[in-house]
Amino acid sequence: MANTPEQNNAVCVEFFDTAWNTGNVRADLLTADAVDHSFVGGKAKSEPGVGSFQHIVGMFRHAMPDIHLTMLDQIYAADKVVHRWSLTGTDTGGVMGMPPSGKQLTFTGTTTVRMADGKIAERWANVDELGLLQQLGVVPPPPGA
């Protein structure tokens, strides 16, 4: 029997909490050909499998070893789960190829997941990269809209 939307959301919360807050990317919660479609931080291609997820999480956890995920909102229906979140951490390893700033950084984003047979099959993400670069002082904050 297919998972309920609530069960799907619980799988996603478990997966993303564990991945971001401990570094353990749980392959058992991904389908064998799961794809992470996000292109954050200069990632250039999306290969199916756990490696793509490990790459993104590993890159940010290397830059910010104390990185912590906070869920801000969750919406789930049918086979989709959508999360709005923030990530906070201290930049001791260098974000997106830049030298370490030593600053505490916070950036927000959204993640959409398609579930299949109770596992994560696809992930899309939008991340406030400009806000991140502004906090790093790489780009000065422009005036309001």
Binding site: D73, I75, T112, N126, E129
Partner: peptide, 24 residues
């Protein structure tokens, strides 16, 4: 590309739209 989160009131009207877009 981007994503917008919406909130509705009991009457089905939008009360909030929160945008996450690819500004960079």
């Amino acid at each position: 590309k981007g994503m917008t989160f919406f909130r509705f009131n009991e009457d089905g009207k939008f009360t909030e739209a929160r945008v996450q877009n690819d500004v960079i």
